[in-house]
């Protein structure tokens, strides 16, 4: 069939309003990467098995390759780009507590799986700050890492818990919107 006309979808990304013109068949993952240039969200398998594309939609971890951009209408989307805590005094991007724990525990090597791991773990700890090792492993069972062997990843997530127990660390504050409706 001929391609149906694009339409405008509006949602919030990392605290900022976004308006994007998309074809109905565009996945949320491709919308984030190509239309909004938020390329931190990685795309591996494109059919739900690897977890690299995991983002947070309305407070819950979801596969952005298994969701259409048009389905994000009115939703609140959080991606890896929003996980840092802004800029530190030196002007460098400051790591959030989960990211800092990943660095301490060598929980990444090539980094391809890392955005998905971090967003899944961030969603988990935001809802369940007391999650134990078994629960962390269960929640991360759908995120594949071909480098680390997972042990450092699980340790890093467990080590980040105090920051969440003290009150969930959020994303960046809203500044300006992104309009890609052309």
């Amino acid at each position: 069939m001929s391609n149906p006309p694009p339409r405008t979808v509006r949602f919030t990304v990392n605290g900022k309003p976004a308006a994007v013109e998309v074809e109905p068949r565009l996945t949320l993952a491709d919308c984030l990467r190509h239309a909004l240039r938020l390329t931190g969200t990685h795309v591996g398998c494109e059919h739900g098995v690897c977890g690299a594309c995991t983002v947070i939609v309305d407070g819950r971890a979801m596969r952005s390759c298994l969701m259409l951009a048009v389905q994000a209408e009115g939703c609140t989307v959080e991606t890896i780009e929003g996980l840092g805590t802004g800029l530190d005094e030196g002007g460098a991007e400051a790591l959030g507590p989960l990211q800092a724990a990943f660095r301490r525990h060598h929980a990444l090597q090539c980094g391809f799986c890392t955005p998905g791991m971090l967003m899944t773990a961030h969603a988990l700890l935001s809802r369940e700050p007391d999650a134990d090792a078994d629960r962390v492993r269960e929640a991360l069972s759908g995120n594949l890492c071909r480098c680390t062997g997972y042990i450092g990843i699980v340790e890093a997530v467990l080590d980040a818990r105090p920051a969440y127990q003290a009150g969930a660390p959020g994303g960046q504050p809203a500044t300006g919107g992104i309009d890609r409706t052309g």
Partner: peptide, 9 residues
């Protein structure tokens, strides 16, 4: 059933 993020949808 499936994994954590898939169970959310």
């Amino acid at each position: 059933v499936a994994h954590y993020p898939i169970r959310n949808r």
